[in-house]
Design a protein around this nucleic acid. Structure first.
Lengths: 190, 190
DNA sequence: TTTGTACCCGAACAAGCGTTCGTACTTAAT
DNA sequence: ATTAAGTACGAACGCTTGTTCGGGTACAAA
């Protein structure tokens, strides 16, 4: 129906599979049953596709952060909510997430700087929630930066393992990852 | 002194900064004060460099795994030892680790398959240690695959943040990351 | 029926890529 | 002094890349 959207969707898959650099416009054209030159009736340039994928997901995460910040909840509940949102996004839209996580470096200026600024902002707000939890004694007294990056990074495998040896259904997987990150690997009281 | 080694070292840095695909042989040549054609007095082809970086690190990790497997220790101590090794490697050689983690996909066959097989083997042995810990009740009853990927992934930010806002010295940072992964974010008994 | 708009294509462009080739120059071994 | 090996270079090759251009077709509005 909407050819433009079809191009964007197929491009995301292609960027995920081969990486932005190795994905050629002729590859992409073939997937949407066009010739390369015809793509330019729908888009201005290749990088525009990357920009849109990254920008859309940045908005997606920023809006989630706003909702969480407005919650009446403890830092622990807020962190749990953010982790849950990240995990669900990774499972529902693994293609875009991969591009967002791994291919943003191919953005040209000024979009690259904009992207990084927006990511820094998101991380800063996440860090504030963590800092609050540490100050309250809800969290272990660990450097908030270390916590921030370890949590975010500890999740970054989900979108790669879409159909790999994880025999779980959504809720079970989400619960276990969150439990592991919040409560740790070691079993307590022993 | 040894020009070949200089090329390999500079190539690793270049691959890290721009990605394998975007790093051209002319870029690399300039960095070692040569012209592109002169590189081929020292190496056979571009991908050969990538092969060596990946293969060397694969050996590095496999040998560490062998030492850990031979330890007389609990699963918890073995996991702690492996995490410690990963973290130290990421901090001591962030350049190679980045290439090893992010650029291996550009390996051509049959090296790509070899690399993946070796990685699967490593993960399988790591998984066995985790499984032992779960069976003994030392670890939480979480799917060993989820534990494996979350632990390995939770560390994968260190090599990117070489000179970023982590004001820690080595031991402190290593201790805190391991504490966070093994004991969790939440403070106990409250 | 004419005009306009949206879409598609083949051909071609300039630029960049990894790599090869022929040829020098330097250095050490014979 | 002669040979051989090692290293460096400029030029060029064949290929792929993103993108442009001019011309074509389809279809709806005027």
């Amino acid at each position: 129906m909407n050819k433009k959207q079809e191009i964007y969707d197929e491009a995301a898959k292609l960027f995920q599979e081969k990486g932005y650099g190795a994905a050629s416009m002729r590859d992409l054209a073939e997937r949407v049953h066009l010739k390369a030159s015809s793509l330019y009736s729908h888009i201005r340039k290749k990088e525009e596709i990357l920009e849109k994928i990254c920008a859309d997901l940045a908005v997606w995460f920023t809006e989630a952060m706003e909702r969480v910040e407005e919650m009446e909840a403890t830092p622990r509940e807020k962190v749990r909510e953010l982790l849950s949102f990240h995990i669900r996004t990774a499972m529902d839209d693994p293609t875009s997430i991969t591009v967002f996580s791994d291919e943003w470096k191919h953005l040209e200026e000024p979009y690259r700087s904009q992207f990084l600024a927006s990511r820094r902002d998101y991380e800063e707000r996440f860090r504030r929630i963590i800092q609050a939890g540490v100050s309250k004694g809800e969290f272990r007294p660990i450097d908030p930066n270390i916590i921030l990056y370890t949590l975010l990074s500890g999740i970054r495998w989900l979108h790669h393992k879409q159909r790999l040896p994880i025999p779980q259904h959504r809720e079970g997987l989400e619960m276990q990852v969150i439990e592991l990150l919040l409560e740790g690997l070691s079993k307590k009281n022993q």
